[in-house]
Design a protein around this nucleic acid. Structure first.
Lengths: 128, 128
DNA sequence: CACTTTGTCTGTCAGTGATGTACAAAGAGG
DNA sequence: CCTCTTTGTACATCACTGACAGACAAAGTG
């Protein structure tokens, strides 16, 4: 399910948060669902439980999780953030850089186009 | 042209490299073009010239730039990397996480879809 | 009432990102 | 040829932070 890349320069706790956030946005969790305990997930990923705890805290700060002392992390109703007016730039630039990196690594335009279209379609259907 | 976000957790030298790589992939530079000197760009961005130098070195390692001692950085012919077989995962996952982050920040699906389609179109036309 | 479970807190420690500073070598101008 | 400037690089420093270790308090469990 979740994969950690220790060689990456993006910190592990953020990789975990990113992965979980994607699942949450995709709606793979229902309200009130319990996430694994920090220790369980830590063992599963081969990292320290404090690292997982930091990821959980980050998601809690964003409003995704409710962290109660000994009841684990439960998925929470989330107020959608105020619609930012800074708009496209916040997304277009990273996307552009991500594409550049992919092309530089030799991925084919064809493949990238397919992935983009697929993502757009899934978004349109309310998913991902 | 280039913008640096000091608040970001992604290191400045990598932000610079990412930005320049995007320009290079987009074909905004011709073969043999000279990039600004490390000091000039450093002043322009408000960072130390060693930070810019590190970005240049990263791009040189990727084969984009030729760094000669006192002749600045010149854009180089680049052998396209071997087509990776690890394929989609390398791109699909970061894209997914990027979209999740954007949605979480309140960007509308409509906007994201539009950006995705635009990017796909530009890719199809050989650009970006 | 013990015993376990669970998230949190504090401390440590290595890695690294950004800078300050000095340097060597190539150019510019005479 | 000589001098001054320009330019990328090398080295040291310094603070920050990510990951871990270990202990703790409190809620659950029986």
């Amino acid at each position: 399910m979740l994969r950690i890349d220790l060689a990456s320069n993006v910190p592990v706790y953020e990789q975990i948060a990113n992965g979980l956030r994607a699942e949450l946005v995709a709606g793979h969790f229902a309200l009130g669902d319990k996430l694994p305990t920090v220790r369980a997930l830590a063992i599963d990923l081969g990292v320290h439980h404090n690292t997982v705890a930091e990821a959980y805290r980050a998601l809690a700060d964003e409003g995704w999780l409710e962290l109660k002392r000994h009841r684990g992390a439960t998925v929470r109703e989330r107020r959608s953030a105020p619609n930012r007016s800074e708009g496209p730039e916040k997304f277009a630039r990273p996307l552009r850089e991500l594409l550049a990196k992919a092309l530089a690594e030799g991925l084919s335009r064809k493949l990238l186009i397919r992935e983009l279209i697929n993502s757009a379609r899934r978004l349109k259907e309310g998913g991902l």
